[in-house]
């Protein structure tokens, strides 16, 4: 029953993920999140809604945060992807990760990879973001556990500012 075969031919894309070279055979319908999680095996990036509403799948594509569940795999050909797995240097957590542990920025941990990547993009563009800038950068990331207080505090700590409650 050949009617089962999807009509479009697969294509091989190449991409760099956390500094490592990868190839993936993808069809037009494949999203970046599937390439990362199912083909390359980097399951740190989470898929919470498959529709771009929760932000759990946020990764950096050429240093800009994107929703991997809405990014076509074909668009990523020849590009550079960074995921949560690329943040730590071996066993050494980076300052943002450390700050999330200090400030209670993670509870169940499902939204955390996406939140960390959004925050990473922010801090790379803006070393000392104001609370308003932090909120703007993380507005696409839902978190149901923390109430966001610990997340804002963690980004403040990571950027060398004193954590404290912000309205």
């Amino acid at each position: 029953m050949n009617e089962l075969r999807p009509p479009a031919k697969p294509r091989v894309i190449t991409l760099t993920v956390n500094g490592e070279y990868h190839e993936a055979t993808v069809r037009p319908r494949h999203m970046l999140v599937e390439v990362l999680r199912e083909m390359i095996g980097l399951t740190g990036t989470k898929d919470g809604c498959a529709s771009g509403t929760c932000g759990s799948c946020t990764v950096l594509l050429d240093d800009r945060p994107v929703l991997a569940c809405l990014t076509l795999a074909l668009e990523c050909d020849g590009r550079n992807v960074r995921t949560v797995e690329g943040l730590a240097d071996g066993e050494n957590l980076n300052t943002l990760q450390e700050a999330f542990l200090d400030q209670g920025g993670t509870q169940c941990g499902f939204c955390t990879p996406g939140v960390l990547m959004s925050a990473t993009a922010l801090l790379e563009a803006n070393a000392k973001p104001s609370p308003a800038e932090i909120k703007k950068a993380l507005e696409g990331n839902l978190c149901r556990c923390t109430g966001y207080n610990g997340i804002v505090d963690a980004v403040l700590q990571a950027s060398g500012q004193s954590p404290g409650q912000v309205e």
Partner: peptide, 21 residues
């Protein structure tokens, strides 16, 4: 004290059901 599961949760190592292959 810091979360015991914290390092796994900020590095993407924490295994959720969807991650088991």
């Amino acid at each position: 004290a810091r979360r015991k599961d914290g390092p796994d949760k900020v590095t993407g190592r924490a295994v959720f059901t969807q991650d088991v292959k």
